[in-house]
Design a protein around this nucleic acid. Structure first.
Lengths: 228, 228
DNA sequence: AAATATTTGTGAATTTCTTGACAGAATGCT
DNA sequence: AGCATTCTGTCAAGAAATTCACAAATATTT
């Protein structure tokens, strides 16, 4: 079904398709054409058709796309129907905010454990999950086999933690620390989040908005209409 | 100095350059060639030279780039030396985490106010800043003239809030809500943050890692070596 | 039932982005 | 001081991403 080399550009757009389709579904819209969707998402109809066709022909000529079915398909492509277990390491401000703010279940993950190396946090509950000390990780992973970890720890402790987790069978990392996992483990699936990059990009946009023309909004900034 | 049409691809790379240069500076490295930097950042030397030359010739043939000076220049391009005021709207979990976790001063912004519509949060302090009720916004903005706002509020209240803020002189938004500002205010500078997109992209990578070849890591995933 | 409207999937054209290659300039070694 | 080495800035080639254009298929109207 899936052509073997999907470009990164396409993959990065899939979550946005998924969100918009969810929104349409909430609004009770059952079918949509690439043209209509392109207007809502502010991109070209051609791009939408190209993107979707990397994975198969989900549409029907003369009709368009069935919203529910297309969303299900995109979700499947993204692996949102896997129902894997995920753990979170580091129950500081960021870790707690992510625990509360991100609805993991909505994206096919079960947040099954929260860990911190600070013994004084042990047994404190966040969103109904008790924080465990990191020395409980081997036991927990042997029992629950989580495949993904959210890293909300400082760079200093990250290297050892990743080594540990890799050995315990975790091979995907949502990495809010600034340690570069790929340098040591090129085979792990890694998504680095650098919120400050986003802030700096905004700073650039703000500066260049003030200075000159109120024209040419870079396309990536025109975006997003959504649920939640 | 700045050629008028800098592509979005280049702009999105600037924060990463800035981070790496900061790291080099911390390590006491005073000069670097595009080749050396390319090895550290895992991209081509040609791209680095091409990118930097969009903004001017910061290097010297036979020598390379002066790290401190280049970092200062990139910071200036990004507008990190503006020292504008920024406010944060919505003191929920996410808002509090951002307040504590993001070092705004490091990127040229002074977090000067935190606002929430929940009256019971009034006067609670986060990172030394007292939460104010949102009805204090007009007075506060008249006095302090913040130019940027971090939006940590639900989509439902976002539209009215943005309208308000625009009228109060705020024209840049770090938008964690899922309301699409650009639909109504095409001239505002907006950076939308969709953490769940990042999670879904990771899900895709994790799935396709398990399934087949341990080859072809998409280039965007190989990344980032950093301070903090 | 035929005619007209839509709308997809796809190959080709176009545009954008990245990489390669090298002249010219500065460095540092002997 | 001369010579080999390093390294930038830039132009041109190559690769990748996006858009255009249209045939084939379905839907809708008359």
């Amino acid at each position: 079904m899936q052509k073997n080399n999907i470009s990164n550009s396409v993959i990065r757009r899939l979550p946005r398709y998924y969100r918009f389709l969810g929104e349409l579904l909430n609004q009770g819209i059952t079918k949509i054409s690439s043209r209509e969707l392109s207007e809502k998402m502010r991109l070209t109809a051609s791009q939408i058709r190209q993107d979707l066709n990397c994975f198969g022909g989900f549409g029907q000529q003369g009709y368009g796309y069935n919203v529910a079915e297309l969303r299900r398909q995109v979700g499947h492509i993204l692996g949102l129907d896997k129902h894997d277990k995920i753990i979170l390491i580091g129950a500081g401000n960021l870790g707690r905010a992510i625990t509360v703010h991100i609805d993991f279940a909505k994206y096919g993950y079960e947040l099954s454990g929260i860990f911190d190396s600070n013994i004084s946090l042990e047994n404190i509950e966040i969103s109904g999950i008790k924080i465990m000390h990191t020395n409980k990780l081997p036991e927990f992973c042997a029992e629950n086999a989580p495949t993904m970890a959210v890293l909300c720890i400082p760079k200093s402790g990250a290297k050892d933690m990743v080594k540990n987790l890799i050995n315990l069978g975790v091979n995907a990392f949502w990495n809010f620390s600034h340690y570069d996992i790929h340098y040591d483990y090129p085979d792990a699936a890694v998504e680095n989040v650098h919120l400050t990059d986003s802030l700096m990009t905004l700073s650039y946009a703000a500066k260049n908005k003030q200075d000159h023309d109120p024209e040419d909004i870079p396309k990536d900034f025109i975006t997003d209409n959504e649920e939640e």
